[in-house]
Simulated scan of single mutants.
Amino acid sequence: MPKINGNEIRGGNVLEHNGGLWVAVKVDHVKPGKGGAFAQVEMKNLRNGSKLNERFRSADKVEKIRLEQKDQQFLYETDGMLTFMDTETYEQIELPADLLGDRRPFLQDGMIAVVEFHEAEALNASLPQKVTCKVVETEPAIKGQTASKSFKPAVLDNGVRIMIPPFVGVDEDIIVDTETMEYSERA
Rank of each mutant, 00 (worst) to 15 (best):
M1P: 02
K3I: 09
G6Q: 05
N7H: 03
E8A: 12
G11W: 00
N13Y: 07
V14S: 11
L15R: 04
L15F: 05
N18D: 11
G19C: 07
W22S: 00
V23N: 04
V23L: 06
A24M: 05
V25T: 04
V25P: 00
K26T: 12
V27A: 05
V27S: 00
V30C: 01
P32D: 01
G33S: 08
K34M: 02
K34N: 03
A37N: 03
Q40D: 14
V41R: 08
E42C: 06
E42Q: 10
M43A: 08
K44C: 03
N45G: 09
L46K: 10
R47E: 14
N48A: 03
G49I: 05
L52F: 11
R55N: 07
F56M: 10
S58G: 12
S58C: 11
A59M: 05
A59L: 07
A59V: 08
D60G: 01
D60Q: 06
D60C: 01
D60L: 01
K61G: 09
K61C: 08
R66N: 13
D71M: 11
Q73I: 15
Q73C: 09
Q73V: 15
L75W: 01
L75G: 02
Y76E: 07
Y76C: 03
E77G: 01
T78E: 11
D79S: 05
G80S: 04
L82N: 08
T83I: 10
T83Q: 12
F84V: 13
F84T: 11
D86P: 15
E88A: 13
Q92S: 05
Q92H: 00
E94Q: 14
L95R: 05
A97N: 03
A97S: 08
G101V: 15
R104I: 12
F106Y: 15
Q108I: 06
M111S: 11
A113R: 07
A113H: 11
V115A: 14
E116L: 15
F117D: 11
A120P: 00
A120M: 07
E121F: 13
L123T: 02
N124F: 15
P128H: 11
C133F: 06
V135Y: 04
V136Q: 07
E139I: 08
E139Q: 12
I142R: 06
I142Y: 03
K143D: 07
K143F: 08
G144V: 07
S148K: 15
S150D: 02
P153L: 13
A154I: 05
V155M: 07
N158V: 14
G159H: 06
V160W: 01
M163E: 10
I164V: 10
P165N: 12
F167L: 08
F167A: 13
V168E: 04
G169M: 05
G169Q: 09
V170K: 15
D173W: 01
I175Y: 14
I175C: 09
T178I: 10
T178F: 12
E179R: 12
S184L: 12
A187F: 06
